[in-house]
Design a protein around this nucleic acid. Structure first.
Lengths: 190, 190
DNA sequence: TCCAATTCCTAGCGGTGCTAGATATGAGAG
DNA sequence: CTCTCATATCTAGCACCGCTAGGAATTGGA
């Protein structure tokens, strides 16, 4: 019986190794550099092994994204918790969100731009995604007024997402980043 | 002499045919379906001909994007021109921007998400891009107050871009789209 | 009419994600 | 302890991608 347990454990470890290798490679060289051949070489197994864990490359990217949701949620929670007042909370949360996106661009892309077939309506994504979203909601609650809170949250989120993506693709001048963020925060501050 | 003129004209026509074929194919089936082989078949020439017009596939996508900038700018200009008052102008411009992105998703992607090496600092892109950006600027000018106008414009633009991209990738509920847009418009209305 | 230059195509390179079929491994039965 | 059989893994290959070298065909001018 224990041998089966061991094999299951080893299998789980290998699955995590695949995710970690994909994550590290994507962060270091971008998703284009993450090929199934390089991934297989990294974990020291042959290519087809990947397909016994994941349906395809997209599923591996989705797994990396899932880890990202947990990370981002934690960062946002922490930012709001340490803010002095509600107004500062909006600024701190926005800064934390943007910092995450800038420091882990590849993961951010996997979460929000690539891999459309993420399990957005099942399993463990909602847990961490909802955690982060709820935290955003609480942050902007003071400014929601008579608007629907969820709608205001989504709009604020979209503003952050737009700033992040446009700047990283070179459409916005990097120098004015902080000022743009300040404008957005001001529009969503109590 | 006239034969050379004819050949240059035919060459220009073929170049436009490539761009149009890429545009149509991308709109119909997405950029993944736009391969150099299909493009070549579409214009009834062999693959290498494409490379005598463009440096590579990215350059073809950039050319499609350039056409898109002109289209978007025209739509935005028209929206602002027909608005009854400054407040309505913000709403109309936002609606026109979002409508363009939703009706021509592939072109919007080529303009703002893919193809990083766009000639953002030369030739004819700045003309149409600046045209659209200037129009956005005039629209939000009443609300700029003591903030820098360009910064406010970029932030408003980022909000629109965020709404568009997050919704099309399935991260936002489609039903509440108009309400989110209203929230954003309200935050940037005089 | 012949030559030279340009235009265009055929064929192929190295890469991708993914998979079928063969092979090695190891657990359980006799 | 040996044999059998299922499971795990690998080798080899498919169809496709963007891109390019080199040869064939066409064309304009002498």
């Amino acid at each position: 019986m224990s041998t089966q347990a061991r094999r299951e454990r080893e299998r789980a470890e290998r699955e995590q190794a695949i995710i970690s290798a994909a994550r590290d490679l994507a962060l270091a060289e971008g998703w284009d550099a993450v090929t199934t051949r390089r991934l297989a070489a990294e974990i020291e197994y042959s290519q087809p092994v990947l397909y016994s864990h994941f349906k395809g490359k997209d599923a591996i990217m989705a797994a990396v994204a899932v880890e990202g949701f947990a990370e981002l949620a934690t960062a946002v929670v922490s930012a709001r918790a340490s803010a002095a007042d509600p107004r500062q909370a909006v600024a701190d949360v926005a800064a934390a969100y943007v910092a995450f996106a800038q420091q882990r661009p590849a993961i951010y892309d996997a979460m929000f731009t690539l891999a459309v077939d993420l399990p957005f309506a099942s399993q463990d994504v909602p847990t961490d995604l909802a955690r982060g979203f709820a935290e955003l909601s609480e942050t902007v609650r003071p400014v929601a007024a008579d608007d629907d809170l969820e709608t205001v949250t989504e709009t604020f989120w979209a503003g952050l997402h737009g700033l992040v993506t446009l700047m990283r693709s070179g459409r916005l001048r990097r120098a004015d980043h902080d000022r743009r963020l300040a404008v957005l925060v001001d529009r969503f501050s109590p």
